[in-house]
Amino acid sequence: MGASLMRCDRRQLLTLAAGALGLAAGESLAGGALQANPAADALRIGLISDLNSSYGSTSYIPQVQQGLAHLLALNPAVVVCAGDMVAGQKKGLSARKLDQMWEAFARTILLPVRRQGIPFLPAVGNHDGAPGFSADRQAVRRFWKHRRQALGLRWVDSADFPFHYSVLDQDVFWLVWDASSSRVPEAQLLWARRQLMAAEARQARLRLVVGHLPLAGISQGRDRPGEMLTQHHRIKRLLQETGVQGYISGHQHAWYPASEAGLDLIQLGAMGSGPRLLIGDRRPRPQSFTTLDLDWQEHTLQETSYDAATGMTLDWDSLPEQLQGHRGTLMRNRALRPLTQL
């Protein structure tokens, strides 16, 4: 796997920094059950989400840097962020303030990942660039415009990066759409079907879709309209018909790996402020991050989540076997499961 990682040269690092000073990267070893180095015929994917602190913040709570250090110690082949990288979505934030927030993200998250030679794949969250917040969306474009080629990704369609785009890398086809609000734009759903049916997607061993808002509510206070995607049945059908393994999302600030009609719902906990209780649960959950281990030979996927502060694995069996939410019953997935085949 190591040979497939694209190392950042000095020019790329300077491009990523774009004026940011310093580098916030810790040295740590993850204390989980997984080995630091995956097997030869395997691929490890690192997943993070909801990193932000209070509105307008240009700093991150300690668990964000701790979690990132633990994740990087596990040597993922790619790091995927399912949104809310900064703390926008507040009227009155100036362009200068928004730029400062994004430069803090570059120092704290993006540079440490790329410094280790790991590709970074972002999705836009509601606190990054929600519809109706034009200044936020302009800041998103300013920040990412000159960094696209320095992310270590193999692009299929990047015309509207970072709001929606597709990537084919290391036998995985990634599709990212703009789920920064409760409705994916109609044009993007049509684009998604074309992308997922195209040759690049069909030749991949695995297809994954990433967006910020989920298909179902799983946490207390967010199991309601506006906090999940409205086109639930249409999107689920689209992903099933195009052989997608799973939909990776954030926003609910709670980790709950679910399965619905053969589709993995990989719902990430918050690595930043404000973890939430699961529906009907009283046990507080820590800040967390997740890995997916793909075993191509065995044709399996192993999902594992970790406490961001300690790096210790979270107990799968401590999660409720099912959640009864706004959209009905959601069943807990298996940690080890087969890869989807068309």
Rank of each mutant, 00 (worst) to 15 (best):
A77S: 15
P76N: 11
Q89H: 15
K91A: 14
V79P: 06
T58Q: 09
V64A: 03
V79Y: 05
S53T: 04
Y60C: 05
Q89W: 14
V80T: 12
N52K: 02
M101E: 05
V78W: 14
S94C: 12
A82M: 13
M85F: 06
N75E: 09
V79I: 08
K90C: 10
S54W: 09
S94T: 14
K97L: 08
A69T: 14
P62M: 04
A95E: 13
A69R: 13
N52P: 01
P62C: 04
P62Y: 04
L72V: 05
M101V: 07
S53E: 05
A77W: 12
G92Y: 08
N75P: 07
G56K: 00
G83A: 09
S94K: 10
L71P: 04
C81A: 08
V80K: 09
L72A: 05
D99N: 15
V78N: 15
M101N: 08
L68G: 00
R96Q: 11
L74M: 09
Q89A: 15
V64P: 02
N75K: 12
Q65K: 07
A73Q: 10
M85G: 04
A69L: 14
V64D: 01
S57M: 12
V78K: 14
L71S: 07
Q63N: 02
R96K: 11
V64S: 01
G92I: 11
L74A: 03
M85R: 08
Y60Q: 03
G56Y: 02
Y60R: 03
I61G: 00
T58M: 07
S94P: 13
N75Y: 07
I61E: 00
P62F: 02
S59F: 11
G92V: 10
Y55W: 13
L71C: 10
C81Y: 01
A77Y: 14
S59E: 13
S94D: 10
A77H: 14
V80M: 11
L72F: 06
A69E: 14
A73C: 14
A95R: 14
Y60G: 02
V86H: 00
Y60D: 02
V86N: 00
R96Y: 09
M85V: 07
K91R: 12
G92C: 09
D50N: 06
L93M: 10
S94H: 10
P76Y: 08
C81V: 06
Y55F: 13
I61W: 00
A73E: 08
P76M: 12
A77G: 15
P62D: 04
S53D: 07
A87D: 08
Q89F: 15
P62S: 07
L93E: 04
Y60E: 02
G88K: 03
V64I: 05
A82E: 08
V86I: 03
R96I: 10
V86S: 00
D84Q: 08
N52F: 02
A73Y: 09
Q89K: 15
Q63L: 01
V64Y: 01
Q66A: 12
A87V: 06
S59N: 13
Q63Y: 00
V79A: 05
S54T: 12
V79Q: 08
L68H: 00
A73K: 06
G67H: 02
K91T: 07
H70D: 08
D50L: 06
S94E: 11
G92T: 11
V79R: 03
S94L: 11
A73F: 08
P76G: 07
V80W: 07
L98Q: 08
A73N: 13
